[in-house]
Amino acid sequence: MSASDLTGFAPRSLPGTAPIEGRTVRIEPIVDDTRFDELYEAFAADRSGRIFDFLAYGPFADREEFAAFAQTTYLGGDMRFHAIVPAGTGTASGVAALMRADPANGVIEIGNICLAPSLQQTAASTEAMFLIMRRVFEELGYRRLEWKCNDRNLPSRRTAARLGFRYEGTFRQHMIVKGRNRDTAWFAVIDREWPALRAAFEAWLDPANFDADGRQFQRLEDVRAALLDGA
């Protein structure tokens, strides 16, 4: 089936609840409150609350407030939240949701990403995104995966580009979040781009790309560029 001839395309399935095992991280779709205390502790390590600056919720005053939020948000609605559990600790320290699913058109978004300080800029956080992307394109067969963020959220914009998402434009005055205007930057990966991105992720995640202290030898962007140049 070509990109233009979609007569045989069938609606995609919604994300399920099977965990995904990686080398440095485990992805667990959130189906109960098992990981809530761990997530609260991990997020609370950011005493400034900056990890919530561009999210519609948080920071949280205490464990009870977070638990009430998590019960309603992580387990309610039409978003499938995933707990990100680094292999080195075995405790959840981040979340990411597959959301705004459009099965008929094969489109879905990854969002509501919140990473504790301990998870940021780690191989585990990158592998987590790779595993979720792989599920979207290979297991579920979606045609398009979107990434949207506040246009002012420079770290999120840089992360989207680093992971291989392409910038597609900015929706001005798109939302009101915490009493402030949000212009929303849109990024996406489409299915025909995925094989090259997967190859770059796998090459970057190879243990040979890291020293004894876990520092990378090559950046993901450089690995991807080298693979594309050699294609």
Rank of each mutant, 00 (worst) to 15 (best):
I132T: 04
M129G: 09
G106S: 13
S125W: 01
I113D: 00
A116S: 13
L145N: 05
E146Y: 03
L98D: 02
V136I: 15
A104I: 13
A124S: 11
D102Y: 09
M133N: 13
C149R: 00
V136A: 15
R143D: 12
S118Q: 09
G141T: 13
G141H: 12
Q120N: 14
Q120L: 11
F137Q: 13
W147Y: 06
L145T: 08
E127P: 05
A124H: 05
A97E: 06
L145P: 00
F137A: 14
S118I: 04
V136Y: 11
G106L: 10
E138K: 15
T122G: 01
A128N: 02
N112E: 12
R144Q: 10
L119M: 07
F137V: 14
R143I: 09
M99A: 13
E109I: 00
R134T: 15
A124Q: 02
P117V: 10
Q121D: 14
L119C: 05
A124R: 01
G106N: 08
T126G: 00
N112L: 08
S125F: 05
S125Q: 08
L115W: 07
S125G: 13
A96N: 07
R143G: 10
Y142F: 14
E127F: 07
A104M: 12
R143N: 15
N105T: 08
A104K: 14
I110Y: 01
D102Q: 11
E127L: 09
Q121P: 09
C114E: 03
A128H: 01
D102F: 05
L119S: 03
K148P: 01
G106P: 06
A101D: 02
L115E: 06
R134L: 14
W147C: 00
R134K: 15
E109W: 00
W147K: 01
A96H: 03
A96D: 03
E109D: 04
R144W: 12
S125A: 11
Y142N: 08
V95I: 13
E146L: 04
P117I: 08
N105H: 12
